[in-house]
């Protein structure tokens, strides 16, 4: 199995008091696989994913370690080099889609600008690409959406638009940080199905979540985080059928599902 992303000895400390928040985290993301990172609040899962994207404020967090992507250590790249990689090769889908969009700009324009920043295309080509991608996301009345401001759309729609934008540039990895947490179950289901379709194209995903249901539905590999450390990792079957740590067992038990339910 070839690894697309290798994280080695990632450590994040607070600049203010040197307190470690993420400790010695190492894992790999295989090509075309979905890695689930599960943990509760304060486990460091979101910080880990943000550190990979170089999204942490250096004045607040010190990040040490290696994030190997195609032979380069992302943590040591210059700002300019990083800009070339982010969005193009690695995309992120955030928990709150509302904050990911510029509230004063129409969706269409935002899509065109994102595409044009990375690909040598005309405005018209970029627009058409956007329309096509939105249609693939199960969205109706696409031209109307392209012409709306973010606040007029629902959270579920925005989330799907964000995924569409992430996909437009055909990245190699998409990091989804609690991307479906705030959504209704029906929308969540659509988006998770979309993740699987993304995977079928050979794109890897890192799905950060607190919900073992999300993991059960999409992940191939799992790491369980607690208090900034990886306490258990393995394939999804190992984690579900043969959890080793008490904490993982407790997390699994905290699910409320009635037993007799069968799922398609």
């Amino acid at each position: 199995m070839s690894n697309l992303l290798e994280i080695r000895e990632l450590n994040i400390t607070l600049v203010e008091n040197q307190r470690p928040i993420v400790k010695n985290v190492s894992f790999n993301v295989g090509k075309g696989r979905i890695l689930g990172i599960i943990g509760e609040s304060g486990s460091g899962k979101t910080l880990t994913s943000k550190a990979i994207m170089r999204l942490l404020n250096e004045k607040i967090f010190t990040v040490k370690g290696q994030v190997e992507f195609r032979g380069n250590n992302l943590l040591q790249m210059s700002e300019r080099e990083i800009e070339g990689v982010m969005g193009k090769d690695i995309s992120m889908i955030m928990q709150n889609p509302m904050t990911a969009f510029d509230p004063m700009m129409k969706i269409g324009k935002q899509i065109i600008e994102t595409v044009k920043a990375h690909l040598p295309l005309s405005k018209k080509q970029a627009y058409d690409m956007g329309v096509q991608q939105l249609k693939k996301m199960n969205l109706n009345r696409v031209s109307e959406i392209m012409n709306s401001y973010p606040h007029t759309l629902s959270g579920g729609m925005l989330q799907r638009i964000m995924i569409a934008i992430a996909l437009l540039l055909e990245p190699r990895i998409i990091i989804a940080d609690e991307a479906t947490t705030a959504l209704d179950v029906s929308t969540q289901s659509i988006i998770l199905d979309e993740f699987k379709k993304i995977q079928d194209k050979g794109i890897s995903l890192i799905v950060v979540t607190h919900d073992f249901g999300v993991i059960a539905k999409v992940a191939n590999d799992v790491i369980v985080m607690k208090d900034g450390e990886i306490i258990e990792d393995g394939t999804v079957h190992e984690i579900f059928y043969n959890p080793k740590t008490e904490y993982t067992k407790e997390l699994l038990k905290a699910r409320l599902l009635a037993d007799e339910v069968s799922y398609a």
């Binding site: 289901s189 249901g213 059960a216 992940a219 079957h237 799922y263």
Partner: peptide
């Protein structure tokens, strides 16, 4: 139907 599965 939209509920998440219990097991992978």
């Amino acid at each position: 139907k939209s509920l998440l599965p219990k097991l992978p």
